[in-house]
Design a binder for these strands. Structure first.
Lengths: 347, 347
DNA sequence: GTCCTTTGTGCAACCGTTTGCGCAACAATT
DNA sequence: AATTGTTGCGCAAACGGTTGCACAAAGGAC
């Protein structure tokens, strides 16, 4: 309640100096004698002076604020991504301000506008599922605010993006399963409007094609709502009683698939093998631990923040397309089947 | 880049009016004729004027910024809590700014200081594990910034707190198990320096005491590092081969316990029953689904944000101690044992 | 003793908005 | 015709800092 804060003027008055001197003394300006600096610092300490950042940044062009817009606060990837971003942002003396678009394009646009109001120095954006073009980013462009698209994005040559190579990951996963003799896999993907889904699926398909293993449409599950998964699995198993492996493209799909398999009494990896693209946390607490392509949220966050801060500080509008590599983590949820390479691989 | 933004002055110049008039016109001030208002709005639109919030809030005493400080971005409770907070904060035209203390008191203090720099209108604080007194909150007090302590807190009569009734929850969980004939339970708790752990444990103990069921110290597991859990479980099972039920006080402990039980080939609920205090997400994807006392992060977030905004807007320093009630969700991970109430309950 | 540096400090403008007050112009009342 | 009231707008100060420039004092070189 006390409320009214100590300002430069108060210090100036108490020392019989001008505000300018105080300001410079606190900023360690060479013009000020070290004796004065000492006196000023002591006085500031004594009065428990707190600079007003808004006033300071009103003059400066920047705000040292970085905005992050995520579609939603899921429990899987987002928290570790935020952790990574935060680490870098704080280390560089920026602050992070987090918004949620609730997967709505309208909200996303509103939030971008809000970022301009706040004069954020940069924006990290994970696109909403609804978003299918990038026109609304022009808002930021007009204000000269750099933006980087993270994780989920859509094809663009005009904006910096930081993603994993989704197609390669899908391809690697499928190849891994195929190499171990799993010629009838299910691939569980999320909403195909997201490029991330489409790409991973594309890689998954290509791996089958390259090895000359047929892949029926019914082996591909497209899960828009997690509640649908149960029914989709039923249908897939009915169509393909010979399924020996399942791939899920996210952690969320993984944990629910894992659960639904357990409920059906299907043993991993004895009856069915399981593999995922994952942040690495869920695979560690599921039984058995799940083999996965690790896509580290922390790393993606850190890289993204670094890149954005680079754009801010070097005023660069160079467009980049950064791919973070995934690493294979084998934890024993994939069995090796008898006929390893039925159709000779090396032709 | 493009950069320099349109200001009130630009609009004023383009219309031959004064800045004051423009400002008032955009604020829909009654002094301005509706004809002028229209012209101004059109011009603002045409020039794509964006108000500078920092300048605006420099005059105002407030910033419409609410800070949240969490110890870490876990995957379990925190994300849903943030979701809840965000919802309310946005609805009331504030913005949320999220910080992480990494469970360090030093960081926590630094961040609080930073909140004063930003002149946040209010602070939501989830205490770091290290924090054992609230002296550093005086920083905020001096600036008249209201603060609410969420979830993890320590005893205080001087600050508003929003928690569940931890002791009651611990008590209810134990009672639930005891009533179903589980007279040898393990209780898995986290770092006891956190009041949250101590309280839940206290309730857990009291339930045993009230029903006259002995509870050995070795039935209580105190897990400081999740990696220790495996060994602690070994020892507990060795000391108590007759364990029939396990209670975990958080989601994180739950998923890892669940995993370690599965690894030991222990079936739930046939061999051992399992119960937790949980946000509700993990119990839904573990097999079998886990009976729990639901402690909704979203709800806690929403309530907290509401309360803090109330404090901000009514300038109230009335101290509150809000308890959110938990609800029992029975999902079948707890078996009913033969001798339901061996020692008569109603004496 | 003048001229030129150097050193340390203050003046005042500025960042972009908001707002109390004053003041014209005009209408309505006496 | 003088008074009063309304309407619509502008002046200028304020918010809390930063910074270009001027300037005084002191010292050194001539």
């Amino acid at each position: 309640m006390a409320g009214n804060r100590v300002t430069l003027k108060d210090i100036a008055k108490s020392l019989g100096l001008s505000m300018a001197t105080i300001s410079r003394a606190l900023a360690d300006h060479p013009d000020i004698s070290s004796e004065t600096k000492l006196r000023v610092r002591d006085a500031a300490q004594a009065l428990s002076y707190i600079p007003n950042y808004r006033a300071r940044y009103l003059r400066a062009k920047h705000s040292r604020l970085i905005a992050l817009i995520v579609p939603e606060m899921g429990m899987f990837f987002t928290p570790s991504m935020i952790t990574g971003i935060n680490r870098v942002v704080q280390a560089n003396d920026y602050s992070l301000i987090v918004f949620q678009s609730d997967n709505s394009l309208v909200q996303e646009r509103r939030l971008l506008e809000y970022c301009t109001h706040l004069s954020a120095d940069g924006v990290l954006l994970v696109l909403a599922t609804e978003t299918s073009d990038l026109d609304h980013l022009a808002l930021l462009g007009e204000c000269g605010i750099p933006v980087a698209l993270l994780d989920r994005t859509i094809d663009t040559t005009r904006h910096t993006t930081i993603t994993i190579d989704d197609e390669a990951a899908g391809h690697e996963a499928a190849t891994y399963l195929l190499q171990r003799g799993h010629e009838r896999c299910l691939g569980i993907f999320s909403d195909e409007r997201q490029r991330i889904s489409a790409s991973r699926l594309k890689g998954f398909r290509r791996a089958h094609f390259e090895r000359n293993v047929p892949l029926a449409e019914t082996q591909i599950l497209r899960v828009a709502m997690i509640a649908d998964l149960d029914g989709l699995l039923d249908r897939a198993f009915a169509a393909h009683p010979d399924v020996t492996a399942i791939f899920t493209m996210t952690d969320e799909l993984l944990v629910h698939t894992h659960h639904l398999l357990a409920r059906r009494g299907i043993k991993i990896p004895k009856d069915v093998s399981l593999m995922a693209i994952s942040d690495g946390q869920a695979p560690a607490f599921l039984h058995p631990n799940v083999t996965h392509l690790r896509h580290s949220g922390v790393e993606e966050g850190e890289r993204s923040a670094h890149i954005l801060i680079g754009m801010i500080e070097h005023n660069s509008d160079a467009m980049m397309d950064v791919r973070i590599r995934t690493t294979l983590v084998e934890l024993g949820s994939v069995a090796i089947r008898s006929q390893p390479a039925r159709r000779r691989v090396t032709r």
